[in-house]
Design a protein around this nucleic acid. Structure first.
Lengths: 240, 240
DNA sequence: TAGATTGTTAATCGATTAACAATC
DNA sequence: TAGATTGTTAATCGATTAACAATC
């Protein structure tokens, strides 16, 4: 059950013969932002052998309203069936289609330090159908190594590599100071997606997709919540 | 200029004598989510020696509307001055206060693998005033080591450590399978904040702050954007 | 058919933007 | 004073929730 073949679900009857939603949607950002979470929970359901689910049931598991789930899923057409609910496999296949899982995107990781290594060792990429085909670094102690099956090339070979291999996206896990240069080189070589962990925020033109990840922002949100809790608890004990 | 003393700004006239906002605010989630970004940009301005800024100028740098900036900053009272703009140091100090920078939160990292190591080697924690005082792991090859100045203890010593040291938050960078147990133990020991990278989503009671980080969601958002771009570009060449 | 559950509309709620009076 | 820029209100926009008719 644990090594469930998710790819099979994508290549089966669930997708055959139907027009793909990939890239076509004109859906609100709020909905799009929630889709990856549906993806995760649907995989979990599939792994647990669940084949059908109602919006009510899913709402309990995911801690959102059933109304929102129905509204969200309906943006892309009727995935469900009245009186029955949703077919889990079918729904999973649809969401994968919308999000580009199965598009066969290929990526490279620039910066093979701890963060780059942590990411490549995580099954995250495979699960989402992204194939990381190489890593790059400048450190002579790292260049030439093989990490999780990927060769670490020297940054000097970036141009050569990108000309010989189609690269759709680059994961930027290198130091901030080198980030701008690396990003610009990658984009010049035709890379259209940047997953950016460097802390710098990049703004390219509309033909380059950028995801700026700021872990520090998340840490601050946690600290904010901690303040709220501490404050509330402090107040309570004041009242004693 | 690069090793600017940000702490000095927090301890100076900017905070003295005024009632702290920490924990007191009743502000919309949308605003709170944006504050860490202001924090980053304000630091950048300070590092560049800028002492005053208008909402218009900041809006250009941050790619948001000036109106939103004024609205956001006003949730906490008048930080600015008509005809002048905002004092950068003062604004920085205020936002730090709201977000709990300077509260002296202390944390531990549970899981000293590549991700835990990547995080501790990043200046992120210091910048936000969070003091990571120890790391924990179960791997005998890692336990006993010192990473970025922090001793890696065995998980068996978690109880002992938490009883001898106040621990406000725990960073969970350990494998999914061990996550639930580690989280519950930490909470039982009085830890009130969990920065959770394990992929599992935790729901504790209202007295435990949890930030569930899902890097895969961010990767999927990138893939979605890539699909959109590919689709648009594909359409254009169809029209030729 | 009866029961269940979606699809979809309408109502509510919240967040963003625009505009300008207040004021430094 | 004149110019600049905030603070704040009102208008717009978008997202969420509630409700129920359609339908499996």
């Amino acid at each position: 059950m644990d090594n469930f073949d998710f790819d099979k679900i994508l290549s089966k009857e669930n997708t055959d013969g139907e027009r793909s939603w990939a890239g076509r949607s004109d859906v609100s950002p709020a909905v799009i932002k929630r889709l990856p979470r549906y993806f995760r929970y649907l995989r979990e359901l599939i792994r647990n052998g669940k084949t059908r689910i109602s919006s009510g049931e899913l709402s309990e598991i995911m801690h959102v309203t059933a109304s929102q789930i129905r509204q969200d899923l309906n943006c892309f057409g009727g995935f469900g069936q009245q009186g029955y609910g949703y077919n889990v496999n079918y729904l999973y296949a649809k969401i994968c289609d919308i999000l580009g899982v199965g598009m066969g995107f290929r990526g490279i990781i620039i910066g093979a330090g701890n963060l780059g290594t942590a990411l490549i060792k995580n099954p995250m990429f495979e699960k989402r159908g992204v194939d990381i085909i190489a890593m790059f670094d400048v450190d002579p102690n790292i260049v030439g190594k093989v990490i999780a099956g990927r060769i670490v090339y020297h940054m000097d070979d970036l141009e050569k590599f990108c000309k010989e291999n189609r690269v759709d996206l680059a994961v930027l896990t290198l130091p901030k100071e080198l980030a701008q240069d690396a990003a610009e080189r990658a984009v010049r070589l035709g890379v259209r997606g940047l997953w950016n962990f460097t802390g710098k925020e990049f703004y390219f033109d509309e033909n380059v997709a950028v995801e700026n990840v700021h872990l520090g922002d998340s840490l601050m949100t946690l600290c904010y919540k901690l303040c709220q809790i501490n404050h509330r608890i402090g107040e309570q004990s004041d009242e004693d």
